[in-house]
């Protein structure tokens, strides 16, 4: 289980942008660091983050070596009606985490 934190407003107004905040546990190893014995630590990165609203891409980010461990990604989304946000973190070594959250438009 990879811990994630996702926060957004409980109630959303139609068409009004709202902030979505996400946080995930991940080492984001650059592949350029040695371990204490001098051996290189293999690269291990989240490379892509997507947020879909009812299957339609709403936000996408490409992550690389410059992003610190436990990436924090915040962005704005707007929705016309209630639906489901689907978050996906995709990374090296088969890393794939999916979370969904219902949004309620009032």
């Amino acid at each position: 289980m990879t811990p994630t934190r996702i926060a957004m407003p409980d109630e959303i107004r139609a068409g009004q942008p709202f902030e979505v905040k996400t946080l995930i546990t991940h080492p984001m190893e650059t592949g350029r660091r040695p371990d204490p014995l001098g051996n290189p630590i293999p690269q291990n990165l989240i490379t892509r983050f997507t947020c879909r609203l009812d299957g339609i891409l709403a936000f996408e980010a490409a992550l690389d070596t410059g992003v610190a461990a436990n990436p924090y990604i915040a962005f704005l989304v707007s929705a016309e009606r209630s639906g489901t946000l689907e978050f996906e973190w995709h990374g090296q070594h088969g890393f794939n985490v999916r979370e969904t959250r219902a949004i309620r438009v009032v």
Binding site: M1, P3, R5, K21, L23, T25, Y72, A74
Partner: peptide
């Protein structure tokens, strides 16, 4: 209260 990365460990601890 959201972005403090230490809370990832607190969440994990709760689980």
């Amino acid at each position: 209260d959201f972005a403090n990365p230490g809370l990832l460990w607190v969440d994990r601890g709760k689980a």
